[in-house]
Amino acid sequence: MNLSRFYGRSTELETLSQWIVGDRARLITLLAMGGIGKTVLAVKVAEHNQDAFEYIFWRQ
C-alpha cells in the first residue's frame, strides 16, 4: 500500500494512538464515506504503534 500521500491526519493519528496504547481500547471502529482514507489511516496507526505490541494481526 502506498502511504507516501499521508498528510494532514496527525490529530487523528495521535487520538487513535492514545486510545489504543494509552487507554488500551480493545475495539475501535473507523466509519466514514468510501475513499476518505480509513484504511491508510489504520495502516499508519499500526505502523506508528508497532513497538507497543508483540504481534499485530491485520484483517480487511
Rank of each mutant, 00 (worst) to 15 (best):
D51G: 10
V43I: 04
L13W: 04
V21Q: 05
R59W: 05
V45W: 02
H48Y: 10
V40W: 03
L16Y: 01
N2L: 08
R26L: 13
N49S: 08
G37H: 09
H48V: 00
L3G: 08
T29F: 06
L3W: 09
E54L: 15
Y7C: 13
N49P: 00
S17H: 04
N2P: 12
R5Y: 14
A32H: 02
A42R: 07
G22D: 07
R5S: 14
K38M: 03
T15L: 10
M33D: 00
Y55N: 15
G34S: 02
L13V: 07
Q50G: 00
M1I: 09
L27W: 11
N2H: 10
Q18K: 12
F53P: 09
H48E: 10
S17C: 06
K44Y: 02
L31E: 02
T39S: 14
L13C: 05
D23S: 13
V45K: 07
K44A: 11
A46R: 05
I36K: 06
I56D: 01
L3A: 12
S17Y: 00
R9C: 13
A46S: 09
L41T: 01
V45D: 04
H48F: 07
T29H: 02
V21K: 09
R24N: 11
A42T: 06
L27E: 09
L31K: 05
E54N: 15
E12I: 03
F53L: 10
D23H: 11
D51R: 14
L27D: 04
Q60M: 06
V40C: 08
I28G: 04
N2A: 11
Y7D: 10
R24K: 14
S17E: 09
A46Q: 03
I36Y: 04
T15G: 05
E14G: 11
T15F: 01
E47T: 07
H48D: 09
E14Y: 07
G34P: 00
G34D: 00
K44E: 14
S4C: 08
R26E: 14
G35S: 03
K38R: 12
G37A: 05
A52V: 01
